[in-house]
């Protein structure tokens, strides 16, 4: 009986102790969230991703994708609506940088089905959109390297390579030129070429026929 009593007293005391400790800990848990909740991935992780150039898509790659009707990506123009309306890439969505995190656009950039290619005039604002989106853990975000300006310099108005350059440069130029025609640019020779093509064979046809007639004449002489 004595043992039982002692044990019981001790145990009831322990309960109070346990309850106290639990209360203190619970209080501590209430204090913890006071440290501001961290949004998104760790800064070091974000830096590592941002330093790498993996996110960049070149203008040549992009024009290839558009021409071959690759369905795996969506284009997001982060410039203001005015610039967007003036000129933008085919089928692009306009999400001005300031509205990037608005709820109505979240469905475009926070999904895993498509690659999202951001672009602006250069890749300055597009990179900013990329950094913020990546911090929030959005997947498959890419950036058009050089933006619209590079698009103009390489695809819309490609520089004609000078004659000393390698054959690849000429190949690249003709690919880009063909691409630029796809995107609406017209070249003077584009129209001119067609007619001479018809004329020249006609001229050739006439001449050989005459020569044949003349040869027998010569031989006869």
């Amino acid at each position: 009986m004595m043992v039982k009593k002692k044990l019981a007293r001790f145990l009831s005391f322990r309960y109070v102790l346990l309850a106290l400790i639990l209360l203190i800990l619970a209080g501590g848990l209430v204090m913890l969230p006071k440290v501001e909740k961290q949004e998104g991935i760790h800064a070091e992780q974000l830096l590592n991703k941002a330093i790498s150039t993996e996110r960049y898509v070149s203008t040549d790659e992009l024009s290839d994708k558009i021409i071959s009707q690759d369905p795996s990506f969506i284009l997001v123009d982060v410039r203001d609506p005015q610039s967007f309306n003036e000129y933008s890439l085919p089928n692009a969505v306009n999400i001005p940088l300031r509205n990037l995190l608005d709820e109505e656009y979240e469905a475009y950039i926070n999904q895993t089905q498509y690659d999202v290619i951001f672009y602006s005039n250069d890749n300055f604002y597009a990179d900013q959109a990329w950094v913020l989106g990546n911090r929030l853990g959005y997947q498959n975000l890419r950036v058009l390297k050089g933006g619209i300006n590079e698009w103009y310099n390489s695809i819309i108005n490609p520089t004609v390579p000078n004659e000393q350059l390698a054959a690849e440069d000429f190949e690249l130029y003709s690919t880009r030129k063909a691409a630029s025609m796809f995107f609406g640019v017209m070249y003077p020779e584009q129209n001119r070429v067609e007619e001479p093509v018809i004329e020249k064979p006609a001229a050739r046809k006439v001449v050989p026929v005459k020569k044949k007639k003349k040869r027998p004449v010569e031989g006869g002489c």
């Binding site: 610039s83 003036e86 000129y87 602006s120 005039n121 250069d122 300055f124 604002y125 933006g147 619209i148 300006n149 698009w151 103009y152 310099n153 819309i156 108005n157 995107f183 609406g184 640019v185 017209m186 070249y187 003077p188 584009q190 129209n191 001119r192």
Partner: peptide, 24 residues
């Protein structure tokens, strides 16, 4: 110049179309 457009692409394309049809 941060994000300064190098050219008015819409105008460039329109101009190229005009040139191409005129010269022909």
């Amino acid at each position: 110049d941060v994000e300064k457009p190098v050219a008015n692409i819409r105008a460039f394309i329109d101009e190229s179309v005009r040139n191409a049809t005129k010269k022909e």
